[in-house]
Structure formats: C-alpha cells, structure tokens
Amino acid sequence: MRSTLLKTAAAVIAAVAASAVIAPTAAAATTDIVFDCRGDTPFGAEYMTLNQTVDATAPATVSPSGALDIVVDPAPNQVPSEAAGYTVREVRDFTLKVPVPTNSTLTGVTLTGGSGLGSTPTWSESGGIVTVSFAGPIAGGASFELPTITAHLTAGASGAIESTLYGTSYDDPGLTFTAVVSTFIGNVSVPTSCFPNPNPVLTSTTIG
C-alpha cells in the first residue's frame, strides 16, 4: 500500500524537481531518475525505489556572462484512489530541492500554468539551493497538472553548466512529501524522504 502511494507522490515531486533545474533548448533529453526513499510509518520505516522519467532541455552553448533559461512542462497525471485495498485520501506538503548549477548564477524562477494542485507552488533560494514547494493537498483519484517551471540563469566565465538534482541520503534528502491513507487504525500520515541514486546529469551547457 505505502509503496504504491509513495510512487505516485514521488512522481509529482520528481516532475517539479526536474523542472526547477532544467532549461529550454532545441531538443529534449529524456533521463530516467531513480530515487531511494524512506517512509516513516507507525509500523516502522519502509524503504523503496522510485523511478521517474524526465524530459530535460537546455542550450548546448552559451556565451560567457550570457543569459539562459531552463524549462520543463510536466504532463498531466493522476493520484490513485486506492492502494492495496486501502483508500488514498491525499498527498501533501511537497518539497523539492535543486542545486543552482556550478558556473552559473540564478536570477529567478518562473512558475506558470498547472492545475489541481490544491495550492499555489512557490520557490525560494538559500545557499545555492532552490526549493520548490506546495502544500496541496491532492485528493486520491484526482487529476492534476504541475506548472511549467523556468529557471533563469546567468553563465559564468568558462566551463560547463550541468544541472542535477539535490540529495545524498535519507537524512539529506532532495525530495520530501507526506502521503495520507485510510487504514484499519484510521488515517495514517507517512512522511517520506528521498534522494536520487545515482544522481544523473540532466543537462549540460558549454560556456564559450
């Protein structure tokens, strides 16, 4: 039950993650991201692997000190209404962290569009880490569409601008969320922490 729910919620966030760090270019690169996750349930920790495919785009080259945008437009999705015989009530409290790529400076993030999220996504930056979050909730069985996310960057003097996700362990996660399900003991909240393992390079732009 919890594994199915975690996969669904993680798919929501993984799309946000990819969006926050990716930019527009001629062609999209498809990357399969594998997350290691730990859900803290009343019955103990549950471990699982989540898989999420991401279409990422970025310019192949940019001039020194030049501007570039990194953009992702996630496809519509749906939260399951049932998992292992239990009712999925909602998923909520999403947070996704993405490092600002080396050899670049973040000038802003634009979130546009999206529907069925239960709240308005926001972003913040601190210490070179961008955090995209929204409270939800997204009800079980509901359809939703994540916003298009555009990261605005300024290139450095030289080198490559490589976008990746954040997170190195369950205690230093890049993706967190809470799943709520109905069980024989009542509604159960499952806080979940995930990190990409391995952490692939999503896009690469050469400065020059």
Rank of each mutant, 00 (worst) to 15 (best):
D73I: 02
T4F: 10
P101M: 09
D73Y: 01
I149L: 12
P198H: 08
A75E: 05
I70H: 06
D172R: 11
A14D: 14
T41P: 03
A155E: 10
T95P: 01
Y86K: 13
L153R: 07
S124T: 15
G39E: 04
E145F: 02
G118F: 01
A155Y: 03
L111N: 13
T31K: 11
T105M: 06
T107C: 13
P99M: 07
P80T: 09
T168N: 06
F195D: 02
T150N: 08
T102D: 11
V190Q: 02
K97P: 01
S126E: 13
E90N: 15
P198L: 12
I138Y: 00
A75M: 12
R38S: 11
S126T: 13
T57M: 12
D171A: 15
S81I: 06
A135D: 14
I22C: 14
V62N: 06
F177N: 12
S204L: 02
L111F: 11
I129V: 12
S189V: 03
A29S: 10
A18L: 06
A75Q: 14
V181W: 02
E90G: 08
T120V: 08
V12F: 00
S169M: 12
Y170E: 10
A11T: 12
I185V: 12
G128V: 04
V21C: 11
S158E: 08
G167N: 13
S65D: 14
D69A: 12
R89L: 15
T168D: 04
F94K: 00
T41Q: 04
E46I: 13
A9I: 07
A9L: 10
E90T: 09
D172F: 06
D36P: 01
L165R: 09
I149D: 00
S193M: 05
V54K: 05
C194F: 08
A28Q: 09
F134Q: 06
G141K: 04
A58H: 03
N197K: 05
T61C: 07
P64I: 08
A83W: 02
T120L: 03
T120F: 03
T8H: 05
P191N: 08
S19M: 08
A26P: 05
P59D: 08
F134D: 02
S193H: 06
P147K: 06
F134V: 04
P137D: 02
P198N: 13
D172Q: 15
L117P: 00
G113W: 04
N77G: 13
T4Y: 11
G116C: 01
T110L: 13
G118W: 01
T57S: 15
S19R: 07
T87P: 02
A17K: 01
T49E: 13
F184P: 00
R2P: 08
